[in-house]
Structure formats: structure tokens, C-alpha cells
Nucleic acid binder design. Structure first.
Lengths: 152, 152
DNA sequence: CTTTTTGCAAAGTTTTTGCACGCAG
DNA sequence: CTGCGTGCAAAAACTTTGCAAAAAG
């Protein structure tokens, strides 16, 4: 049987010199139960209910990022949100609709080969990538540009 | 002879219903003379010398983004920076070194085909993309992981 | 002349910090 | 034990807003 995601998380913490604490588990669970990236203020809000202090959240996110457990991605055109990365969540890229502003996940990106080539051609060694695509989502293509964005 | 970038900028403003003002030209010039993305606070600082009010900068960036003249990208793991987009600046992707934290430009990405396929396969119509690659830059590969980051 | 843009100043939010205590290893 | 992790409270930094004056077309 496969190891639970939370067990993997504990190991990832330890192997990065971070201790396993209740707060870190809470942050992990909140991220795990949301499919969309969460901004720092959102995390602060969601975790306040569990007694987490804002300062704790702000101190933790860079650590988890550094440890390769989460990564920050752009949300819309304005904010940075955190997402769990593989193996806690499968790799995916994002599509931002210019008309309605919504962000969609794109699975099975198929960009790996091209990304590796791009990096190697320039002397870099890639370990991860994230692509953000822009354009029109299916809804907005149908409605036509300039139409009212769909009620989200 | 080709039209100057500033003339193109003026046209882009007008065609988006934005007026051509000295402040907008100043912002454009600051972005044009920096190859790296500039964050809002950086822009505020750089333009303060020219008499620009912070509020003006904060109000302007979303307009220029909406008009497709600049776009926001992640800088390092923490901030959002603004860059001019094509035709004011050639398309390029970014490589963030996990070891030293520096961000590099990657020209001629060669990702277009794969990106278009990815989008169409999911019913989206792409107009632009931006990829962020992570890994080790040439310097840090040489030095070895864990070494001191090069003095930037 | 009409409408957009800007500066100013105040208010609101988000982030960072220092320090002392408490828990993980 | 020992030192990392956390809460708290204050400070700093960043952003947003309303309004009246100035500027663009």
C-alpha cells in the first residue's frame, strides 16, 4: 500500500531539517483540501480559525517553498498563491482567461521535453517548471470578447 | 524604417482608450531601460525621483496590464514584477535558480507548439504564455549545491 | 468642453520583527 | 536538555481610496 500523503509530508519536513509540528500539519491540510492556490492572506484567514497566528503563516510559507513542498504561483494578474507540489498534488499548469479572469488547471502538460531542451540549450539544469497560459476560456470564446464575464 | 517603440506605445495606449500622458511615458521608459521585471515598490521608488506619486503607479500598472503592454511575472519566489511585453520587448521565459535565487531570461523558448497543443486539447485559445523553470544555473551546478550563492 | 488622470493625504491591509515561552527531537 | 517554532504586540511596508485640481483630446 502506498504511503499516505501526510506521512510523505512529515518525511519531507524532516529531511529538510524542519520539525513536524501541529501547525505545519494544519497548513498542509488546508492546502490539501483546496485545489486552487491560496494566497498568504487567505491562508491567514483560513488558519486563524485553528488558532494560527499570521506571523506563523508568513514565516512558514518560505520554509515550505524552500523545502520543495509548496510553490508560489501567480493568481490572476495580481496575487501570489501557494500550491502543494508533486507528490502531494500532480503537476499541472495554469490557464488564465483574459476575459473573465478565472484560472484553470491544465493537467498532463506535455511540455517536459520542450522545457528540458530549452534549459539545456542554455546550460541550465531543470528540476521543475510551471507554465501560465493566457487567452480565452471555452465559455468566453462562446460568449464573445467584451461580454459580461460568467458569474463565477 | 521601423516605428520607434515609444510611438508604438502611444498607439497602444490610444487604442485601449488610455490617454498619452507624461507619467505613462515615464513608466514606459523606466521599464524599457531595465531588463529585469520591476516590482510595484521598485517602480514607486524609481519614479519618485521623477515626481510620480505612488498612487499613480499603483493605478497605472493594472491598466497597462489590461492593455497588454506589460505583464506581471513572479520574481524569485516572493514578488510580482512587471515587464514590457512584445513588441516592446521580445518574448522570453524565466529560469529561477534554486540555489542562488537569481532569475535569468530564456530567449527563443520553442514552447509555442507544445503550448498551443496543450491549450487546444482543453478547449482554450491561447494568446500568450509564460513559463518559469526551476533548477540550477550554470554557476551553481559548478559550485555544487549548498555552496554559498555567488555574489550577485 | 468633457472625461480621464493625477497629487495629496488619510485609511486600510499586509508583512516583518523582537522577544519570551513552550514543544519537538 | 537544546534549539527550533510560535504567539503576541508593535512597527514597518505596502496598497487603496476619496476628492479636487490639472491635463488630454
Amino acid at each position: 500500500m502506498a504511503k499516505g500523503p501526510e506521512a510523505a509530508f512529515r518525511e519531507a519536513l524532516r529531511s529538510n531539517g524542519l520539525r513536524v509540528t501541529p501547525n505545519r500539519l494544519r497548513v498542509f491540510r488546508v492546502l490539501a483540501r483546496h485545489s486552487e492556490p491560496l494566497t498568504a492572506p487567505q491562508l491567514v484567514g483560513l488558519l486563524a480559525g485553528e488558532g494560527l497566528n499570521p506571523a506563523t503563516v508568513y514565516r512558514m510559507m518560505p520554509e515550505l517553498t524552500q523545502a520543495g513542498i509548496v510553490h508560489p504561483v501567480m493568481v490572476g494578474h495580481e496575487h501570489i498563491g501557494y500550491e502543494l507540489v508533486s507528490p502531494y498534488r500532480p503537476h499541472h499548469d495554469h490557464f488564465v482567461c483574459e476575459a473573465c479572469g478565472r484560472t484553470f488547471d491544465l493537467a498532463e502538460c506535455g511540455l517536459e521535453d520542450a522545457v528540458v531542451r530549452l534549459a539545456e540549450r542554455n546550460g541550465f539544469r531543470v528540476t521543475a517548471h510551471h507554465a501560465e497560459l493566457h487567452g480565452l476560456c471555452p465559455d468566453c470564446q462562446r460568449i464573445g470578447v467584451g461580454a459580461e464575464p460568467p458569474k463565477v
